[in-house]
Amino acid sequence: MKISVATIMAGIFGALFMAAAGFAIAIYGDFAHFSNDKEEVVAEAADDAKLEQAESDGAEIIELVKGKPAENLKTPLTYAHFKAPAQFAGIEFNYPLTWSVYEKNDATKTTDDKRYDIYFDVGTVDSTQTARAHSLVVSIISDSYESVLGGFRKNIDSGILMAVPYAVTGHENDVNYSGVLLDGNLETGVTGVMLILKTREKTLTIRSDLADTMDDFRDIMLPSFTFVP
């Protein structure tokens, strides 16, 4: 049986018509849906987000009620927020709720030539009377940024301490301020991570010497850290 050109063309254009019709219907369907059901779409997205968040947060609360150790709850809901006095660079950051905090110096008494140190440890802050490793130590030092960084130059040059630029968001206008993140042998026999930032004529350092909590330092504290340079 012979099939004529007209029949073939009818088949091709017929198929094209069907495809074009399907495409047009799909586009119109979407257009009509987004135009007419706008409020439902927005409300549904809000409800889904609310439900998803409630399920996630609810699980944390239930775990806490059930007696799961709070140190194992690692969501923003379980973070505590640290806010230093304004005169100390307005430092703010999150840290695990189960950590203890010890403000070594009286913020109202500290003068320009003194240090301001805050210690953080899991459970109880260990004594600061003798040198020992802590989960986190935040310090404002009256020495210059260059002088503090220079103290680590030997280890950086010898390759046992890595130094990379690190940007921190300031409070004002979300401007990023650059500092240096050190990772490795901070001192003889002490491995840790330390962020050094310049704040006015002083230097701000944030340091973690304990391997067990270094992930918290990187994942919780550093991403939430802000200050006023």
Binding site: A45, A46, A49, Q53, A54, D57, I61, P76
Partner: peptide, 13 residues
């Protein structure tokens, strides 16, 4: 709207 709902839910939770 989803972000706002999430923020409000976080505050409640």
């Amino acid at each position: 709207a989803a972000e706002q709902a999430r923020i409000e839910q976080i505050a409640i939770d």
